[in-house]
Design a protein around this nucleic acid. Structure first.
Lengths: 225, 225
DNA sequence: ATTACCATACAAGTATACAAGTTTGCTATA
DNA sequence: TATAGCAAACTTGTATACTTGTATGGTAAT
């Protein structure tokens, strides 16, 4: 846990961003106890902004507060992971069909640029950046269809999936295949072909399934129930 | 705005529930300004729990805070209404198919009881209770498929739809048709018929479309953009 | 009459003090 | 030694004072 400067934005947001990142990093392990005072000292702010950041994290189910007892980083919930996967699959397919009917030219350009950037970053083996670009690709599709809150809901449901993914020593992702899919999805949107678009998106999403039970067996303390 | 007792639960939650209900009632009109001090006085608590309730309402997009300027009840966003409708349609259809494959006996009993209760309340013309039962019917399907957070996401996206609905003097809902649909959906789940189930759910959801533009023309001040 | 400036009021953001409940561990007693 | 009970050291919940930024209205100079 590193402290940042209190330069820009509100302290509340700074604390929130810091904690959220550290929880999703697993630097703050699932199940670990964490107190308002502890964080306030470490980040050199008062309890109030820390408390308000905690509240936001509670709503996202990244923290669990038990009044007068303590606050804990939530454990990973495999049911939630499946729920997120389910929602993502269905909504991405539906939105892709929408995109293949109407899609703003501006957003289409973003998609194209994104795909090209991915090829570059793939050569540089920059996996972190590739993950970001992957997210942006899908987000752009939702934005183009004016469905960004649905994307946000998906992201929130997928937080446990992201933590789960980090527990694998290496996600042997086949970026070549992923990028091919992105290319094909982009072309389907460009060429207004809803049937192909949905098919490729369906294929694409099948790449990101993670076997949670194995990982749970390795790290039982990090999991719920 | 009526004040309640500070008997049970936290003050924060009490304030939150009160404000949320009054916003969704339209007793607190979209666009109206509202301050922490004002609410703290009315509800006879300090600013802290009010402030924390505000934060939660901001996250649900029912309030908008402009630092050092003021806080306002958010205006109704028709894009959001459409986004909620879209998500609801697709997720309800997907979950209904799930339910038609596996569904816990316990949840199935709940559905059956719910359908029967609806018939009773329809005779009593108790529309408020009918709306509650309608929500519970759909919620039960999601619960039975272990997809309750998806239901919660839908509910959150549909808050603007609910406010919109209240602006109609009378929603001429055909409860007989609605209840018939519920019966048919229940039977499809019971008889494990995914095709019929999804079809009826699709039909069913087409009943609750609201023409937002007309209402916006009548009450322009309540709407965004 | 218009404009520039300043005083004031009021908004949310933050810090700190206090209240109330829980856990923990020591102590006194059997 | 074992156990009941109490006290101290935590926790989060709430109240209040202070800080900082913004809007507003009045006043004086042009």
């Amino acid at each position: 846990m590193k402290l940042n400067f209190n330069v820009k934005g509100s302290m509340r947001d700074h604390v929130y961003q810091t904690l959220r990142a550290n929880i999703l990093n697993l630097e703050l392990e699932p199940g670990r106890s964490i107190s308002e005072n502890e964080i306030a000292e470490q980040l050199e702010v008062s309890r109030t902004p820390v408390r308000e950041a905690f509240l936001k994290l509670v709503q996202e189910e990244l923290l669990e507060v038990y009044p007068q007892r303590g606050t804990f980083v939530s454990r990973i919930n495999l049911d939630l992971v499946e729920e997120g996967r389910f929602m993502r699959e269905h909504m991405e397919r539906a939105v892709t069909q929408l995109a293949c009917n109407h899609f703003p030219a501006e957003a289409l350009l973003s998609l194209e640029a994104n795909v090209k950037l991915q090829r570059l970053e793939a050569i540089a083996r920059n996996n972190i950046r590739l993950h970001e670009l992957d997210d942006e690709f899908h987000q752009t599709i939702f934005q183009g269809c004016k469905k960004e809150r649905i994307w946000n809901s998906i992201q929130q449901l997928n937080m446990d999936f992201n933590r789960l993914r980090l527990l694998r020593l290496q996600m042997n992702l086949d970026w070549d295949q992923i990028m091919d899919h992105h290319q094909l999805i982009f072309e389907a949107i460009r060429d207004k072909d809803p049937v192909q678009g949905e098919q490729w998106m369906k294929q694409h999403l099948r790449l990101v399934v993670v076997e949670g039970d194995e990982i749970k067996a390795e790290h039982p303390k990090f999991f719920k129930s």
